[in-house]
Design a protein around this nucleic acid. Structure first.
Length: 311
DNA sequence: GGCCAGGTTCGCT
DNA sequence: AGCGAACATGGC
């Protein structure tokens, strides 16, 4: 087993705990992601080979520094370079938060988020495919059920690597899902509709009929059009993919129930917004609505909701 | 056991 | 365009 250390310099402010925490929904394990003992780890697929990356942060929020340790049966220099770029992307280290904070600090209600979650970058999924499937798995169920489903999905179908007595999981490849078929997902607790949607997407990607990874180099509008055309993929799912996989800064899942509630808490005397109202009020955070979304969800997931002044 | 959840589609005005 | 209903399954 080869082992290599690499170092990355995120753009400050960068809060590793918040950023990695967001990726793992502030839990030790979520889907294919682990974040425990201040170590973020993920099983990557680099040039068709499994590479386990474990990342720690010896630096500070203002002077951030990351150390990533790579484990793989065989590591080439090219593979290491790819892994480094991949980790940089996954942890969103190049994001410049200041323009967003510039807008946020003038917000009469939400300005505290900039301090409470200072240094939170938006982490990305390893692939667009992963983000799309994770979003579909989470459609129309509560957060607890979503965690269960997503983690189970990865444990049952994903590739694995054992290291120091721990089992690590990668996200299942489209080819794998196509191979096992809809019957292979029957015991995961998904609705038939989700099974069908996930299978059809996996099949299309595996056969080359749908190029999800290519969406990263396309304008947001074109990516949106491609995604929304997929059966079983609606506006909410598209926005989450824009935010979590494509690096688009202005995504906003206005149909999200939790988002409509929390914004209603902040701006509507506690009454939940309708999606249209939420969309309307979100215009003031454009073109950084992805960040606002991530910061609000961080507040929700960590329970740090003190920024909402009692009305 | 009934109602709801981090939606999507379909059919009817 | 806008609105309601059906969809189906896991939590509490």
């Amino acid at each position: 087993m080869d082992q290599v250390d690499i170092f990355l310099k995120p753009k400050p402010p960068f809060d590793f705990e918040l950023t990695a925490g967001y990726a793992s929904h502030f839990k030790p394990r979520y889907g294919a992601v682990r974040f425990e003992n201040n170590t973020f780890s993920q099983l990557l697929s680099i040039q068709g080979k499994q590479v386990l990356a474990t990342v720690t942060a010896p630096g500070t929020v203002k002077a951030p520094k990351l150390r990533a340790r790579l484990f793989s049966p065989r590591l080439t220099p090219a593979g290491v370079r790819i892994a480094k770029d991949r980790i940089a992307w996954i942890l969103g280290i190049d994001q410049d938060l200041y323009p967003f904070y510039g807008i946020l600090k003038n917000d009469p209600v939400l300005h505290n988020l900039a301090e409470d979650f200072c240094g939170l970058h938006i982490p990305h999924t390893e692939t667009v495919f992963e983000s799309l499937i994770l979003a579909i798995l989470g459609q129309q169920i509560n957060a607890r059920a979503a965690q269960l489903l997503r983690t189970r999905f990865v444990e049952v179908l994903g590739p694995t690597m054992e290291m120091d007595g721990k089992q690590y999981y990668g996200f299942p490849a489209p080819e794998k899902i196509r191979r096992i078929g809809e019957a292979g997902m029957a015991t995961l607790g998904l609705t038939r509709r989700k099974i069908r949607t996930i299978f059809e997407i996996s099949k299309a990607v595996a056969e080359g009929a749908l190029n999800l990874e290519g969406l990263r180099t396309q304008p947001a509008k074109e990516a949106e059009n491609t995604l929304i055309a997929i059966y079983g993929v609606g506006g909410w799912t598209v926005q989450w993919v824009l935010i979590r996989a494509l690096g688009y800064t202005d995504g906003f899942p206005s149909g999200d129930l939790a988002l409509c509630r929390i914004l209603g808490q902040a701006f509507n005397a506690g009454n939940p917004f309708k999606p249209q109202e939420a969309l309307k009020i979100s215009a003031q955070w454009s073109p950084y609505r992805s960040y606002m979304t991530a910061y609000l969800f961080s507040a929700l997931r960590t329970g740090r909701l003190s920024f909402i002044q009692p009305v």
